[in-house]
């Protein structure tokens, strides 16, 4: 029994470190619930079944549900465009509306023209996507790597040759 207890404790340390390092929100929630499951089994092995029951019910059922709810409450999808309103192609607008309809998000455009003070705006504000356009009509979608919605966006842009999805890690600047 002692070997099992120490094994579970080592597993706990590994899970905690991976929670700290993980950037994907949903995976973090799964890891948190598995963390509380393992702590519950540790309580049980140390002869505290009452505490283990409370830990199982609260830690691995209600808390992840609340977290998932809080994440899926994100309704607005804010797009920062470094172009004029007229310059945006129609197919790009169609793509974004299709994407936001799929997740039932409210689409919101912010238009900006100067390129200077924008280095890490994607990390500071609650902007989800930056849209840039170069001279050859190539579009760049710049987004956080941690956002899970972006996989769908990448899927949608597969057949458009002039659209590139660039994923930026959290805390990293994009020039």
């Amino acid at each position: 029994m002692e070997i099992l207890g120490s094994f579970l404790q080592i597993l706990l340390i590994i899970i905690v470190i991976s929670i700290v390092l993980m950037k994907n929100n949903i995976k973090v929630i799964i890891l948190l619930s598995s963390f509380s499951l393992i702590t519950a089994s540790l309580y049980f092995f140390n002869k505290a079944p009452d505490v283990a029951l409370a830990e199982v019910a609260i830690g691995s059922a209600i808390m992840p549900l609340l977290y998932i709810l809080a994440i899926s409450k994100q309704r607005e999808f804010i797009v920062l465009c470094y172009t004029n309103k007229e310059c945006l192609q129609e197919e790009i607008i169609d793509l974004l509306t299709k994407f936001s309809d799929f997740y039932k998000l409210k689409l919101k455009y912010i238009h900006k023209t100067n390129h200077n003070d924008n280095n890490d705006i994607i990390n500071n504000g609650n902007i989800d996507l930056i849209l840039k356009k170069n001279e050859k009509d190539n579009y760049f979608f710049i987004c956080r790597e941690s956002s899970t919605l972006m996989n769908k966006l990448q899927q949608l842009t597969m057949d458009l040759p002039n659209v590139n999805v660039v994923k930026v890690e959290n805390g990293e600047d994009y020039d």
Binding site: P49, D50, A52, L53, A54, A57, A61, I62, L65
Partner: peptide, 25 residues
């Protein structure tokens, strides 16, 4: 069961209440 057998088996009001809440959720 956990609520009503709180004085006999492990568990009690809080634990059973949390399980009931998850059932409703």
């Amino acid at each position: 069961y956990i609520i009503t057998h709180g004085h006999l088996t492990p568990g009690g009001g809080f634990q059973g209440g949390a399980i009931l809440a998850t059932a409703v959720l």
